[in-house]
Amino acid sequence: MRCGPIPIPAGYRETIVTPKSSRHVDAYWSFIAKKAGQSVVLPDGHCDIILEHNAVGAEPPTPIITGPATQPYTVQYAKGDCWLGIRLRPGYGVSVWRQKLISASDTVLRGKEALTLLPALNDLQERNLNLENLSKITEASTAVQIDHRLALALEALHVSGGRMRINTIATMAGCTARQINRMFRANVGLSTKIYAQLVQFHRALRLVHSEQLPPASAAFECGYSDQAHLTRAFRRFGGFSPSNIPQDLSQPELFSPNVRFIQD
């Protein structure tokens, strides 16, 4: 947890994969630090496969695999540090973590631990470090079919800003709430409730930050019981209060999975 301003991660780029229905990956992203600094990563409930290295150093790249995040965390970087990342679609975390996904939330595996989990990453150290090669390596590893009921539940949560009730979603998907919850834990690695809260938080943040809605109005529109409720969510998932959102907050469109291209 942290407070204070978040520097815009200059050098951050991402490409959202489309079409939605055909992909296992939400985005390919890269980040090159033009100078030393730190950046806060907001939790989005996704799993990432990352290669970290330094353009000026001779060190071999470090593979990193993240579990679904529910808390903000700070990344420190030195000049020339580079990351190449693949953000898996929610639901595909299981393809990398397998049975360990259950306990993977807010976990980051680095180096050997990441290689043990996904041995295919070993191949990359011999090749050119680019997203295309990283995606080829991970493509085979993440080729799982997710249950259409889970896909429908994820879509319903995103479309409703996290506000649709689990029982309504279950009716829609033609199964029980228990089955939905089980699929979330097994494939996303988070409870349905936490995932819904993350979607709700990101939308509220957008309304307050980008659309300049007063926090009280955003709280009502986003389904928080009152402004204090919204404030708690901001502190929990962002580490800041609604009245003190870092002005230079960079907000990748993590929760608009259908946007075609997001750039700089």
């Binding site: 879509e155 409703s160 649709m164 829609m172 939308r203 957008r206 309304l207 659309e211 929760f255 259908n258």
Partner: peptide
């Protein structure tokens, strides 16, 4: 969702 709206999908 892209427009920052939240809706109850028709079903």
């Amino acid at each position: 969702e892209m427009n920052g709206l939240a809706i109850l999908p028709n079903d």
